[in-house]
Simulated scan of single mutants.
Amino acid sequence: MNLLLVEDDKTIATGLDYSLTQEGYTVTVCHTLSSAQQALVTGAVGSKAFDLLLLDLSLPDGSGYELCRQAKTESDVPVIFLTACDDEVNVVMGLDMGADDYITKPFRLRELMSRIHSVLRRYSKTAASSMKTTLQLGPIRIQLLEAKVYKHEQEILLTPLEYRLLLTFANHTGQVLTRSQLLEGIWDLAGDFVNDNTLTVYIKRLREKLEDDPANPALIHTVRGLGYRVGEAHRAES
């Protein structure tokens, strides 16, 4: 698999390049935003499309946010941020742009490898389960192949994390999901970066976008003292 590593600290970049190569990955290393943007273009038109991006946030000529936005506009390539900024504002901003994970420096190499495997595994499962299928939750239709959501035939725009939260509900319809289970479903091994307050915000956002009356939700039900539940979903070939 081909990885793009964007890290301006050349010592860190060299160490990660060596370790990732030892794990069997083919690594392209860039130290600036401009060189990484060029690498994305080259990968898009050549035979070396990237399977995952590891992006530092603070770069000499810009931000990893810019690169994430560009990459997600062109394809659904998974993105992991590597950064020393761990405050919630930066985390949520990265997630809303489509980042799939967020790991703060300093980190253990084994933790990074675990996060990479987790993100790639999640993408692999999503691709396998989304072939020619549609999920229907009442008036809500989820087109899994296109990762689009519709309500009464009108497209509802969701952030990547909102979409993953909705998929977690849709894949466990009729079940009561605890907050811990929802965090695991959204974030796999990185649940510690999405706390209870952040989860509450995303559930509120989902209700505002999907429910006719968010104050009296008919789709995402609160089960007091336990968690949340949605009704049965219908899966069909598209």
Results as ranks from 00 to 15, higher is better:
M97N: 04
H172L: 04
H172P: 03
V89M: 05
D61A: 01
L157D: 06
L67P: 09
F107W: 01
P78R: 06
Y18E: 14
Y150A: 07
P60F: 12
V194W: 08
E211W: 02
E232T: 13
R179K: 08
Q37Y: 02
C68G: 01
F50R: 01
L158P: 00
N171I: 01
A218S: 14
L20M: 12
G15F: 07
T173K: 11
I116F: 12
V79Y: 03
G225M: 02
L5Q: 11
N90I: 04
D101Y: 08
N171C: 01
N171R: 11
G43N: 09
P139K: 15
E153R: 10
R235I: 14
I116G: 02
G191W: 10
V91T: 12
S238L: 12
E155D: 05
Y150N: 05
P106H: 06
L137E: 09
H117D: 10
H234V: 15
D87P: 07
A218T: 15
F193T: 12
P217E: 12
V91M: 13
R141C: 10
N197F: 10
Q136D: 11
N216M: 08
H117R: 15
Y163L: 14
L54Y: 03
E162G: 02
E155F: 00
L161P: 00
R110I: 06
G185V: 07
D213F: 08
L199D: 03
R229D: 02
I12Q: 09
V201P: 00
R69D: 15
A71W: 06
D17W: 06
Q22F: 05
T28D: 13
G225L: 05
G98L: 10
H234L: 09
Q175P: 00
D61K: 09
G174L: 12
S129Q: 13
V41R: 09
D51M: 06
P106E: 09
K151R: 15
H152P: 00
L3Q: 05
N171T: 06
A39T: 02
F107P: 02
E111R: 13
R121Q: 06
L52E: 04
V79L: 01
D213E: 13
V119S: 02
L33H: 03
S47D: 14
N2Y: 09
P139H: 14
R110Y: 04
G46L: 03
T42V: 11
L137T: 13
C30F: 04
L3F: 07
D196V: 04
T14K: 13
L57V: 04
G227C: 03
A44T: 14
L82S: 08
L206S: 04
Y123H: 13
L182N: 05
I80V: 11
G24M: 05
Y163H: 12
K132S: 14
V194L: 15
T28V: 15
C85K: 11
S34T: 14
R141G: 05
L16W: 02
T26Q: 11
T126W: 04
M1S: 10
D196M: 04
G43L: 10
K48C: 05
V201N: 07
M93K: 13
V149G: 09
A190E: 14
T178D: 07
I140V: 15
Y25T: 12
D17V: 01
R115H: 00
G185T: 07
A13G: 05
D101M: 08
